[in-house]
């Protein structure tokens, strides 16, 4: 078996590969549904209805998609430069910590000043958190997969310490949770009385901005060149290490926005269950989007839809909602396969 490079696919084919991957995912998930003793068609229909069948469902899906867009963008940007940032989870929590530190009364300012300030500081915290692994990688060749992955645990323990200590809400009846952010630091709701908040808009704007950076700017070009062939980039005079640092800053900052938007837009305070693995799911989202920032929006909504829909489905069909995790994991594998097939032709013999 041999792989042979083939021409870049056209737009239709570019869309066909992710769709094919999703179809394959559904087929594989069907087997599990059958084993669980339910009808796949019924189950998938219920998932779809649960994800987008009503205004409530749709709002829920978009709300859930918001942090995934941020972490998906963080991963997409980093992976473009072949900086394997597996630490979006940690960067998310650091962003959330920063939001709570500044947003619970430490700084008094009107919304229009306070929210941008908190955003900037959260991004900065996330950016600096990823800068460490990036420096270790470029200076000493330390594998960033290991450092960023392990930082996740360190940061979560650190947050846990903060929530039992300096950040603990004295009125929290002993629960490990922070105080609530002040009203001026909260992001407005997009629809009165619904959970969808302004963080979603920030996410969309971030995705478009990231797309512009990658496609149109010198930095984006450098990032892609370094990712595709660092050796050739270095030869052409592209400052590879500096580009990796800048990429780390951007990626970490984007991931931190997920934590900021979850606290300031949705939860209002910081707890240890702020993120059910949004940092890791961001990897799936980025891969499903084939690292395209605009694709990240679609992929995040798709993945969020599966989670939200599966919750609703499991209540009525009796299939465990774990099926959502299986589907998302399967989607990652089928998508990676599809990406390979889109770039190479397989020759047998």
């Amino acid at each position: 078996m041999r792989l042979e490079a083939k021409p870049a696919p056209g737009l239709a084919a570019t869309l066909a590969y992710p769709l094919g991957a999703i179809l394959a995912t559904l087929l594989i998930a069907s087997l599990l549904v059958l084993i669980a003793g339910a009808s796949p068609f019924n189950v998938f229909w219920l998932v779809l209805k649960g994800a987008a069948g009503s205004q409530f469902a749709l709002v829920e899906t978009l709300t859930r998609a918001t942090p995934l867009i941020f972490t998906g963008l963080a991963v997409a940007v980093a992976f473009r430069a072949k900086l394997w940032n597996i630490g979006a989870e940690a960067q998310l929590y650091i962003g959330a910590v920063m939001t709570v530190v500044l947003g619970t009364g430490a700084v008094a300012a009107p919304s229009l000043a306070l929210i941008p300030l908190i955003m900037m500081c959260a991004m900065l915290a996330g950016a600096l958190l990823l800068l460490g692994p990036a420096i270790l990688k470029t200076r000493f060749g330390v594998d960033e997969v290991v450092t960023t992955l392990l930082l996740n645990f360190i940061v979560i323990l650190f947050v846990s310490m903060l929530l039992e200590g300096p950040l603990k809400d004295p009125m929290g009846l002993g629960w490990p949770q922070s105080k609530r952010v002040v009203a001026e630091a909260q992001l407005p709701r997009l629809i009165q009385g619904k959970r969808l908040h302004f963080g979603f808009v920030i996410a969309i704007v971030s995705a478009v901005a990231t797309w512009v950076i990658l496609k149109k700017t010198v930095f984006g070009y450098e990032m892609r060149a370094v990712g595709h062939n660092a050796e050739a980039a270095r030869f052409a005079g592209i400052p590879v290490n500096r580009v990796l640092m800048k990429t780390a800053l951007l990626s970490g900052g984007l991931a931190a926005l997920a934590g900021f938007s979850e606290v300031a837009g949705l939860k209002g305070n910081l707890t240890l269950d702020l993120s059910p693995g949004y940092g890791y799911t961001g990897i799936v989202v980025a891969m499903l989007a084939m690292l395209n920032p605009l694709g990240v929006i679609v992929a995040a909504i798709f993945v969020a839809g599966i989670f939200v829909g599966a919750d609703a489905m499991s209540r009525s069909a009796g299939v465990p909602s774990y099926i959502a995790q299986v589907m998302v994991a399967t989607a990652l594998l089928t998508m990676v396969t599809a990406i390979m097939l889109s770039r190479f032709r397989i020759r047998w013999r």
Binding site: A5, A8, Y221, R224, A225, H228, N229, E231, A232, A233, F235
Partner: peptide, 13 residues
């Protein structure tokens, strides 16, 4: 291949 060109980028790039 390894140093002169970036195979996965296009001619213009």
């Amino acid at each position: 291949h390894a140093v002169g060109m970036i195979g996965d980028m296009n001619v213009t790039e």
